[in-house]
């Protein structure tokens, strides 16, 4: 469950010039029920990644209130935020894999942060790597992989711990059409199991094939919710 009320957000990057960063989000309000699926649309620079950053608890709203998985963010303690983050899976636009860890350990991170037993970790990681078609690359390091392979590692890491909320930023931009379709099938299944999913994308063909409720941003404002 996600609920935003009048959320505005400005990056805190007052550089040496003292010039303030542009406002990335203005007065955004919407809600997504648990198990809901949303496309997040808008031209480049509209604020899609910024909105996903707030939802991933990577920054706090400058003004307005945010409620996530039943927790109000503003008054929450740091430990509570950390617990909440463990229930969220994120596919970053730039993947954010750890280059010096093997693919296996990259994907295992969310489970290990939950202190799950190692034999369980092994089984889960191999299962998800097989599913994304990287069963044979577990020992490789991310820099040795193609862009599409890295993106699939990032997807595997985002969903391996069955998070309650999945946030995906352009998760199909390095995938071929077949892989993109499989990913959308996975998201549909997860959504059916009660996972809330928000997918930011520019992929018009994919949106046409999978019509769904969409949130659209323009210059940081929400211009469509439906």
């Amino acid at each position: 469950m996600i609920r935003l009320r009048d959320v505005s957000f400005r990056y805190e990057t007052a550089g040496a010039s003292g010039a303030q960063a542009p406002v990335a989000l203005r007065q955004v309000s919407f809600a997504v029920p648990q198990g809901g699926f949303r496309w997040l649309l808008g031209p480049s620079g509209a604020g899609k990644s910024s909105l996903l950053r707030l939802l991933a608890l990577g920054a706090r709203p400058t003004t307005g209130t945010l409620e996530l998985l039943g927790t109000s963010i503003a008054p929450a303690r740091r430990a509570a935020l950390a617990r909440l983050r463990r229930r969220i899976g994120v596919v970053h636009q730039d993947f954010r894999l750890l280059p010096d860890l093997p693919v296996f350990d990259n994907v295992a991170l969310p489970l290990r942060l939950q202190r799950r037993p190692e034999d369980e970790v092994r089984d889960e990681v191999h299962a998800i790597l097989d599913w994304v078609g990287l069963g044979s690359r577990a020992a490789a390091r991310p820099p040795q992989l193609s862009g599409g392979e890295q993106q699939r590692v990032a997807i595997a890491r985002a969903v391996i711990h069955r998070p309650a909320l999945v946030l995906a930023d352009e998760p199909t931009n390095a995938l071929d059409e077949h892989q993109a379709t499989r990913l959308m099938d996975l998201f549909r299944d997860l959504s059916g199991l009660g996972t809330t999913i928000v997918v930011a994308t520019h992929n018009d063909a994919l949106i046409r094939r999978r019509p769904a409720h969409a949130l659209e941003l323009a210059h940081g404002r929400l211009v469509r919710d439906g």
Binding site: A79, A82, R83, L84, R85, I88, V90, L98, P110, L113
Partner: peptide, 16 residues
Amino acid sequence: RMPIELIHAMGASDGY
């Protein structure tokens, strides 16, 4: 810095 920020974002607590 990079791995710390990443595992922090993934929910590693300050205590961990």
